[in-house]
Design a protein around this nucleic acid. Structure first.
Length: 300
DNA sequence: AATGTAGTCAACCGCTGGCGG
DNA sequence: TCCGCCAGCGGTTGACTACAT
């Protein structure tokens, strides 16, 4: 809005800060406070723009900045708040004394995102990863495949299904998933779903050559074979056994500090509009009027 | 030892919203 | 109401480091 950007200012230095510059900035702020960031560089004898000074101070030089590794508790708080607030890093950082928004943002992008992915949780929506839904179908598909094999389906049927590229791709994805899981024990430790699926290693062999049979079932998920002894529910438009349904997989097995925020708190356009309700025992769907009144205060 | 690749994080850039004239 | 200034925010970049080949 009319204001010239930093880089238009003549001769303003950019890039990493030197110890001398840090010293000047710290000494000036300790003596005078930062006041107007725009005027600070001139007053402090720094050849930087005010924005750069503010960033350096708030993210690095401020005495109350906590440095070093994030604790397990801090991780859980970040993940939980992100599931509610989305990428509101500054809001999240207010819940973590000594941590800056920049630090949290970096930590999220470099560590927590991957961690959630390994746990089978989409880091954007905090919902279970939909690519694992296919895995959830595995027992049912195999049961149905066995049934088809036993019923003696004709070789012509098999050949016809094998020619369907969609079905073949599905089978490929399925096999890749199983191979990845069974070859990496650390994944099992991360995710109960994956852990439970380890027994599928032996089934992998069965998959080879089963593409047509499996796909036949996938194309007709409403078949009776979905009644596998457990209650079924709809997920992504396909009925799957609850025991394997990604709709029921908790994002984290750990406990969490008592931050209670109703589901309504998530903005409609927020990437985190599907917070994990079962997480940490939150009863987000049953928020009362009091919760609705104060949730924003609680966060902010 | 040299080179390539991936991970990390400080710093930058552009945008937004609050505020005052 | 409009306009300009300013601080703050979130996304992105790029330098640096660690690890792999």
């Amino acid at each position: 809005m009319g204001r010239p950007p930093c880089y238009d200012e003549m001769g303003v230095k950019k890039g990493p800060w030197t110890p001398e510059e840090d010293k000047k900035l710290v000494e000036y702020i300790q003596r005078h406070g930062h006041g107007s960031w725009r005027n600070l560089p001139k007053n402090a004898g720094l050849n930087r723009c005010g924005k750069s000074c503010r960033l350096r101070w708030t993210n690095y030089l401020r005495p109350d900045v906590k440095r070093g590794k994030f604790s397990e508790d801090e991780e859980q708080i970040i993940i939980h708040l992100h599931s509610i607030l989305g990428n509101k890093w500054s809001t999240i950082s207010r819940r973590l004394p000594g941590r800056t928004d920049n630090e949290i943002k970096n930590y999220w992008n470099t560590h927590l995102k991957k961690k959630l992915l390994l746990m089978g949780v989409d880091p954007v929506t905090h919902a279970p990863r939909t690519d694992l839904d296919l895995l959830a179908l595995l027992p049912v598909l195999l049961a149905a495949a066995t049934g088809l094999g036993n019923s003696g389906s004709s070789r012509n049927d098999v050949r016809g299904l094998q020619s369907d590229p969609v079905h073949l791709v599905r089978l490929g994805v399925l096999q890749t998933l199983i191979q990845a899981m069974t070859s990496s024990p650390s994944n099992a430790a991360m995710n109960p779903l994956v852990s439970a699926s380890l027994g599928f290693a032996q089934l992998n062999q069965q998959l080879v050559g089963l593409a047509p049979d499996l796909s036949a079932v996938a194309a007709n998920p409403s078949g009776s074979s979905f009644q596998t002894g457990t209650k079924t529910e709809s997920c992504s438009g396909i009925a799957v056994p609850v025991a394997f349904s990604s709709c029921a997989v908790p994002a984290s097995p750990s406990t969490h500090p008592p931050i209670s925020i109703p589901q309504e708190s998530a903005p409609m356009d927020s990437p985190a509009s599907i917070p994990f309700e079962d997480w940490h025992g939150l009863s987000l769907g049953e928020s009362n009027a009091d919760d609705m009144i104060c949730w924003k205060d609680i966060i902010e």
